[in-house]
Design a protein around this nucleic acid. Structure first.
Lengths: 177, 177
DNA sequence: GTTTGTGAAACGATTCACAGCT
DNA sequence: AGCTGTGAATCGTTTCACAAAC
């Protein structure tokens, strides 16, 4: 498949596809294009997707429970293995078959049974403290849904998702036409 | 408040804050900084946040129902007013008090009761069709959770959210340290 | 003395365009 | 003839640094 057809499918340009791929190596053949199955396999290696990841979700609220229920994560190799909340009414209960553990005991659980990534789904004012504790437990990757900028050490990967902010960006687009 | 303290709170730099604000006008006083309440009000005007927006959610699956339950949207001025699904088992039912309408009748509902934004939470292979129909109903802003690149006219604002992709980015970071 | 607003410089990312391989 | 891989050119964004305003 040519960089041009890959680009069309991915919503980008052929030059972009070639430049991006060339950063990691030379995967295509001139005059022929890229061998798709082969390329996909190599990209999965580069992205570290040929293994499963263990995730802890902190926060059993609306978004947290949706993530536990969402099948897409498991399908792609991301297993939510433990869930925490600080609300006594939720601790001890279940969310879609997943027991809700006491957030005060994060260290106990994650020391006994370490995870690869943490997902923060708590109110903004609690997010930094949760992040600190996850980092303290050796978590090296955090997905943060809380609307607060988190400070983490350089060796911890951090991605932020802010749904309200996405809607506000759409609001701006609508307000300026 | 100075651009420096705004920057610290926002996780950016003072030069960035000043450049970004200067794009829209001159809001501060030299030697003094920015009047916070005043600035916030002006930014809300610029972002079009001094009104409420009506949203349609298409897809009553795991993520779709979480969005309906999530209070953050309503708090920030985004009201989900109608929900659609194509699964006959779901149509006619409710998700957190929100009736689920037949996705085949999107046009009927949105013509009678127009919305400002559409949220697409359907499987990837149905997303483009849903987007086309929303656009046909005059929707000018779309938030897409489906893992598919959508084509929409230039005058329609589009934002994509792909949660699995965020996790894969963390995977890449972990695999390359 | 402090801090903004903004040209200019530096940086990074995208696009161009073509030599070189199939 | 077709398509990659990649330097060079272009474009957009971020950072620098300082005159002007308070």
């Amino acid at each position: 498949m040519s960089s041009e057809s890959l680009a069309t499918r991915g919503g980008t340009t052929s030059a972009q596809v070639r430049k991006d791929l060339s950063f990691f190596g030379s995967f295509g053949k001139r005059g022929l294009g890229y061998p798709v199955a082969d390329l996909a396999g190599k990209l999965r290696d580069i992205l570290g997707l040929n293994r499963r990841y263990r995730l802890a979700v902190v926060g059993a609220g609306k978004i947290g429970s949706a993530l536990v229920r969402y099948r897409g994560f498991r399908q792609r190799g991301f297993d939510i293995v433990v869930m925490f909340d600080s609300d006594p009414a939720k601790v001890g209960g279940e969310v879609e078959g997943m027991p809700v553990r006491d957030a005060e005991r994060i260290e106990d659980y994650l020391t006994a049974d370490p995870v690869d990534m943490g997902v923060i789904v708590v109110p903004g004012d609690q997010a930094q403290r949760v992040a600190d504790r996850l980092v303290g437990c050796g978590v090296k990757a955090i997905l943060n849904f809380a609307p607060a900028p988190l400070a983490v050490p350089d060796d911890v990967a951090l991605k932020n998702v802010n749904l309200a902010l996405e809607l506000e960006a759409l609001s701006f687009a609508l307000a300026n036409r």
